[in-house]
């Protein structure tokens, strides 16, 4: 492996008419890395992914993928990408197996190889028993797994996953995560977007936080938390209608106080000590929770908003 990044963007811009979806971002993804774009809906994550997937021409800036130009060398680049889009676009007129073999043919993979790979991949995503089923009766989680399998049919150098677990129930999400983690262990370069901080924490070696088309922070999940948040967070929920009234009394406690509609967050180094201080002030919240800082807190600190609205 050379040090040449697989994806390199400089001042990358995507505009739709007057609307700027991606507003000059710099990104580098290296081989073997699991790289994430974390941000709320509308942050420009999917537009970025489409540009990287060579199905959306950039409106400005520079983009190189696998050392090539996405506009000129689209087919050559796409031949080495695996794409799992946000919305499943499986072929409803084909069976589960045919979805893989047909897709393989789009890459010019010989029929025999396509059949072998389809069988292997169906085992990998645990859909072997549904091989001859149509796509429609599959559950959301199964469809997503099939789409992931489809993205692997050309043995790609980079796998792009746009919101891989959005809309899945917790059990289905864990199954997808587990499969993606295996890919990561096999050394496949993963690029994913998500608005779930737990997903980003579990899967990403490095990530950028996006908001309003810009990158607001970059680093490993741990670095981001250390840089932009405290070690611990105390969540206080007061029984009253407004949390604001209590927040005022908490000022000066810990590094920062964040007031949300339904709770107050105290950013502190030592959670238990802070809880004791709250009690000493004579306040009696309905519930108290001490937890470690997460990427959610990083996002809140950086943008003043929560990730999932």
């Amino acid at each position: 492996m050379t040090g040449e990044p697989l994806i390199r963007a400089r001042g990358l811009v995507k505009r739709f008419g007057d609307f700027t979806a991606v507003d000059g971002i710099d990104v580098e993804v290296r081989a073997g890395e699991a790289f994430g774009f974390l941000g709320p809906n509308g942050a420009g994550k999917s537009s970025t992914m489409r540009m990287v997937g060579c199905i959306s021409p950039p409106s400005g800036g520079e983009l190189r993928i696998l050392g090539m130009d996405p506009v000129r060398d689209g087919p050559a680049i796409r031949a080495r990408l695996g794409v799992c889009p946000q919305l499943d676009n499986l072929d409803p007129e084909l069976t589960v197996r045919e979805n893989l073999t047909t897709y393989a043919r789009y890459f010019g993979i010989p029929r025999r190889v396509a059949r072998e790979r389809a069988a292997e991949l169906l085992d990998f995503v645990q859909l072997g028993e549904r091989a001859d089923s149509r796509v429609d009766p599959l559950s959301g989680g199964m469809k997503r797994r099939l789409t992931i399998a489809r993205a692997l049919v050309n043995e790609p150098d980079i796998v792009l996953l746009d919101e891989p677990t959005t809309g899945l129930d917790p059990q289905a999400r864990h199954l997808v995560w587990e499969r993606l983690f295996r890919l990561k262990q096999q050394g496949v370069t993963l690029v994913l977007t998500t608005h779930y901080m737990d997903e980003a924490e579990q899967l990403c070696d490095r990530l950028v936080v996006m908001d309003g088309g810009r990158i607001v922070a970059e680093g490993s999940p741990r670095e981001l938390i250390e840089r932009h948040s405290t070690r611990e967070v105390v969540e206080l929920r007061f029984a009253a209608e407004s949390q604001e009234a209590f927040a005022g009394k908490l000022a000066g406690l810990g590094e920062r106080v964040e007031v949300l509609p339904d709770r107050v967050l105290l950013y502190v180094a030592d959670g238990d000590a802070a809880v004791a201080e709250v009690a000493a002030l004579g306040l009696t919240p309905a519930t108290v929770l001490v937890r470690r800082s997460s990427l959610e807190d990083v996002f809140l600190q950086l943008t003043g908003r929560t990730l999932v609205d």
């Binding site: 997937g53 199905i55 889009p85 676009n89 010019g108 489809r150 050309n154």
Partner: peptide
């Protein structure tokens, strides 16, 4: 939306 999948290939 069949071609949305196809254009992601070469």
């Amino acid at each position: 939306r069949l071609y949305d999948g196809v254009i992601a290939t070469p």
